[in-house]
């Protein structure tokens, strides 16, 4: 296999394995889909340029670090608005219109409550709950200790309970 083909295969694999999680991560921080697309593209382009320096075992952590730095240096937002799709709402099982309406209202309040949690804590919490990443995986990509991730998670849960109680 020629070097160019090998590089291209490596890059496709990198994209397949990490595109979604990087894009999700930036969305958790910013609540902005278009920004998440743009930053993810920039991160992967940088990875292509630096391909000979990246080790496969640390690639994920490398990509998250670039993404995090890019967001916090250039795009950080004071307030965000999240708009997740929910399978509970979009694929209801013969539920009544009143139930769906109530569910939508709960969904909006929950998304608003999560948007108010501090950036890093929110991203860590959502990586755990939506991307199903375990604490060690999150610790590796966020370059934090497992203990710190545990603290962010309990802080997120505590804030969420308070905020949801206030909004409901």
């Amino acid at each position: 296999m020629r070097a160019e083909e090998r590089d291209n295969d490596w890059f496709r694999k990198l994209f397949d394995e990490h595109y979604k999680s990087i894009r999700n991560f930036i969305y958790y921080l910013s609540g902005d889909l278009s920004l998440a697309d743009d930053v993810t593209q920039d991160v992967l382009l940088l990875a292509w340029q630096e391909r000979y320096k990246i080790k496969n075992e640390t690639a994920k952590s490398y990509l998250f670090t670039i993404a995090k730095n890019n967001y916090f240096r250039h795009h950080r937002k004071k307030a965000i608005r999240l708009n997740f799709s929910s399978t509970l709402i979009n694929e209801p099982n013969n539920e009544s219109p009143e139930f769906i309406l109530e569910l939508k209202e709960f969904d909006q309040k929950l998304q608003a409550a999560i948007a108010e949690i501090p950036d890093k804590t929110r991203a860590i919490f959502l990586m755990s709950r939506i991307d199903q990443m375990n604490y060690s995986e999150i610790a590796a990509v966020m370059q934090l200790s497992n203990k710190a991730i545990e603290k962010h998670m309990s802080k997120a849960l505590q804030l969420l309970r308070q905020k949801v109680d206030r909004k409901l």
Partner: peptide
């Protein structure tokens, strides 16, 4: 509810 979410 949160586990039913996905990024659009």
């Amino acid at each position: 509810h949160i586990s039913s979410w996905s990024v659009p």
